[in-house]
């Protein structure tokens, strides 16, 4: 167990193992995303109130769920980097920030597209939407801080501190936005998801959420490999890797 943990600190080992994971995970993810989309879009019954427009749920909800989970992945990587000074944790932190930001953005955009036919408006200052927007800002803050540092090792540590501060703050921000929303209760808009979801719609949704987690993992590993190659480009193992591939 511990030897596995220590090996994670070694760039060549991580590069090799991530390569062999990606070899089967990446095709599997693409197939799962395709299958899940087909299942959700073609083989589920239409909603009795929203008709077919609800089908965007199969992109919207998985993106939102994984975007939130991504912040915790980032914060845990940050904690590992600060506690055990593990360089690979910095790489993981840096790699997960843009993926999380992209997923948050997808969740916001699909939410707006879904909102137009359902609520009749692109944007509502609803508690959940506002919280997602703030999450996007938190992700962008991490990326901006990382890019501002020239010394990438310090950048990783600074982002780790910021990610941890953000983690403490996320529950507070969420609760206070909920509170704010209950003060400014708008009149007629209501989330339609209150009725329990039918199994025929739930299973493809769960399938898509799993597929999105796999997608997050694939993107994380690909990003980490790219970051590793650029950080370690002057080391011997990269030179050997290039020599082997020729």
């Amino acid at each position: 167990m511990w030897s596995f943990f220590h090996k994670l600190g070694s760039p060549p080992w991580l590069y090799r193992i991530s390569g062999s994971i990606l070899r089967w995970l990446l095709p599997l993810t693409i197939v799962a995303l395709f299958a899940g989309a087909v299942w959700g879009l073609l083989f589920t019954p239409p909603d009795f109130r929203q008709g077919n427009s609800y089908r965007i749920i199969y992109i919207h909800v998985p993106a939102a769920v994984v975007a939130l989970a991504g912040y915790y992945v980032m914060a845990i990587a940050g904690a590992i980097s600060l506690i055990w000074k593990m360089k690979m944790a910095d790489v993981a932190l840096r790699a997960s920030a843009p993926i999380g930001a992209a997923l948050t953005f997808i969740a916001l955009v699909t939410g707006a597209i879904w909102g137009k036919p359902t609520w009749g408006t692109w944007w509502v200052w609803d508690a959940r939407i506002t919280s997602m927007l703030i999450l996007l800002f938190l992700y962008l803050g991490i990326i901006a801080l990382y890019e501002a540092y020239d010394n990438k090792e310090a950048a990783g540590k600074a982002c780790a501190v910021l990610a941890l501060v953000g983690t403490v703050n996320i529950p507070i921000i969420y609760k206070s936005v909920d509170w704010w929303y209950s003060l400014h209760q708008p009149a007629s808009i209501k989330f339609t998801g209150e009725s329990t979801i039918d199994p025929s719609m739930l299973y493809p949704l769960l399938f898509m959420i799993t597929a999105f987690y796999a997608l997050f993992t694939c993107c994380l590993l690909l990003n980490m490999r790219a970051e590793l190659l650029s950080r370690e480009r002057r080391t011997g193992w990269i030179a050997r890797l290039v020599a082997e591939s020729r």
């Binding site: 803050g141 703050n169 206070s176 704010w180």
Partner: peptide, 14 residues
Amino acid sequence: SLLILPLYLPVLIF
């Protein structure tokens, strides 16, 4: 401002 403003929001709200 990009880093800190999101963290300021709970204070603004309350």
